[in-house]
């Protein structure tokens, strides 16, 4: 058993060079710790490059090892990707938010991880590097292979950061969840929206809900149904109906029935759209909230 705290990216990659299946990258380690621990762990949570939250070249750059608490408190993210702040604020508990990271939230590959749902709706890209120093960019939604299984190989590859196009003028995003209690709870369902308004019409949008599949899932049908429609109650109700119809959901004894989950997806989708549209309208009128 060894636990190494990598001081910089190079030393973390060095540790991956051996392609040892018993070596794993960890950040917060909160999820992994409750499972079988691999023999060699490389902790990347102290690498500055992986924890920074900044805006570079008009892109929001969020280190994969940024904690939920830091993301939730970030004014930078709040102004440009509000859905992510809302999602991060509702993960687990203050203690878990202080240690759990956005990268971990994605790599752990739980189907309804709040931050991941927001990231996918925001169109976030993941920047990865492998042990031979090859970099690639991948849409966050593509980092899932099956239920609770990441497409990323933690033995050879490292998730470095997320890139998000900030919400500009006329754009807004929001995240909503429904859970059985107000803290320390996994959601029964959650949803996130990002949209752009032009002359009161939905000019572009991205809608995501979970758990409706192994990964945070785009609601393609609902997006198509309301694209170009006016931002208003009629549209939101249409979205709720369409979303509830298009998703494939499972029921569970611990959370709720499939029928109720389906219904919640619709309600949450409409709620997220409503809030995102409000933000978009505010940003259009120029006054930032």
């Amino acid at each position: 058993m060894s636990y190494r705290i990598a001081k910089n990216l190079d030393s973390a990659l060095e540790a991956l060079k051996e392609k040892d299946p018993a070596t794993r990258i960890v950040a917060g380690a909160t999820d992994l710790f409750l499972q079988e621990m691999p023999a060699r762990l490389v902790d990347v949570s102290s690498i500055e490059e992986l924890t920074a939250i900044e805006e570079i070249d008009n892109r929001l750059v969020i280190g994969a090892a940024a904690t939920h608490a830091r993301a939730a408190a970030s004014e930078l993210i709040k102004g440009r990707a509000a859905a992510l702040v809302e999602a991060c604020l509702q993960v687990g508990s203050p203690q878990v938010r202080n240690i759990g990271t956005l990268g971990g939230n994605v790599v752990n590959a739980a189907p309804a991880a709040d931050a991941a749902v927001a990231l996918v709706a925001l169109g976030a890209k993941a920047v990865l590097v492998d042990s031979s120093g090859v970099w690639r960019e991948e849409a966050v939604a593509r980092l899932y292979s099956s239920y609770n299984c990441s497409a990323l190989d933690g033995c050879t590859e490292l998730l470095v950061r997320f890139l998000i196009e900030p919400c500009g003028q006329g754009e807004g995003s929001a995240f909503r969840r429904f859970a059985a209690r107000k803290a320390l709870a996994l959601p029964l369902a959650n949803a996130a929206a990002r949209l752009k308004l032009e002359n009161g019409m939905i000019a572009s949008l991205s809608l995501v809900a979970a758990p409706v599949g192994p990964a945070p899932t785009r609601l393609i049908g609902t997006e198509a149904a309301i694209l170009g429609k006016p931002a208003g109650e009629e549209t939101w109700l249409l979205a709720a109906e369409t979303a509830a119809e298009e998703v494939e959901v499972r029921g569970s004894l611990l959370r709720c029935s499939a029928a109720y989950r389906r219904h919640l997806v619709g309600i949450l989708t409409a709620d997220a759209l409503r809030a995102a549209a409000r933000r978009a309208a505010v940003s259009q009128s120029g006054s930032l909230t």
Binding site: Y3, A29, V96, I99
Partner: peptide, 28 residues
Amino acid sequence: EGECGACTVLLDDLAVNSCLIPAGKVNG
């Protein structure tokens, strides 16, 4: 399992569940 908070300590001034922190993580 990080579900009750009885084990809360401060790690660099932040509240964390000490039951979820691998001992190796507190180095430095």
